[in-house]
């Protein structure tokens, strides 16, 4: 039996082109198209499709509308699988999409949509409650997981991370204590623990501070949870 699909994309050309491809495909029955998340939701409610194919960036903000719609649809209509289409490999988006489970969800790069077999395979997978991830996305997520697993910051407690973030913002111990509502002694204790966990026990105090901040900035991509000065 053909997979009943609702397709959402705000671009006329992509919508018409992909809709045309799906219409020509016997494995798929395209029951509705939508140009924005509101139309998409209405179409899903009306048609209860087996699968939704949706662009990520749609009106009004052209950021994560498709991810938000996917999560909402999965929550409200658990019988409907959702395959999101993305222009780029956006690991953060994929991570957000899949953070609460992968069942009935898929993530496909737009460059694959003209390869009808792949598109149909992915739609069939999410429709039966499985998942389908673009191989490039899987690679990205694996790299991300590996870097997180090997992060030198992993052994730090939440409080130690907060203290380190303050140091990275250039704060003194006293300013850190004040910002985090801690005693000076507690700050010193946390800093000493951070140095130990980051293997910075042999350096001078100033060097250790700098080294710890460098480790933090490298592990958080330069910004991380660094508080804004004066914030």
């Amino acid at each position: 039996m053909a997979v009943r699909v609702v397709f959402a994309d705000d671009s006329f050309l992509v919508r018409e082109g992909v809709a045309g491809l799906l219409t020509e495909t016997p494995e798929v029955e395209l029951v509705a198209t939508a140009t924005n998340p509101v139309e998409l939701h209405a179409a899903v409610e009306a048609h209860r499709p087996d699968a939704v194919l949706t662009d990520i960036r749609m009106p009004p903000t052209f950021t994560t509308e498709g991810i938000d719609a996917a999560k909402r649809i999965r929550a409200e209509f658990p019988e409907t699988g959702v395959l999101v289409l993305s222009q780029y490999i956006e690991e953060q988006y994929a991570f957000d999409l899949l953070s609460e489970g992968v069942a009935g969800l898929g993530y496909l790069l737009k460059e694959r949509v003209s390869q009808v077999d792949e598109l149909v395979g992915a739609l069939e997978a999410v429709a039966r409650g499985g998942s389908s991830l673009d191989p490039k996305v899987v690679e990205g997520l694996m790299a991300r997981k590996t870097s997180q697993e090997s992060s030198p910051l992993l052994g730090l407690t939440e409080r130690e991370l907060e203290v380190l973030a303050e140091l990275a913002a250039g704060r003194s111990n006293a300013a850190t204590a004040s910002a985090l509502f801690m005693s000076d002694r507690a700050v010193e204790k946390h800093i000493s623990s951070v140095f130990q966990k980051l293997d910075l026990t042999q350096e001078s105090d100033v060097n250790r501070r700098v080294m710890a901040v460098l480790v933090f900035l490298e592990a958080t991509g330069g910004a991380g949870n660094r508080p804004q000065p004066g914030g």
């Binding site: 006329f12 050309l13 082109g17 020509e24």
Partner: peptide, 12 residues
């Protein structure tokens, strides 16, 4: 090479 895209482009 894909007819649906040709038609969509023609419409544009």
């Amino acid at each position: 090479d894909q007819e649906p895209f040709r038609l969509a482009m023609a419409a544009v």
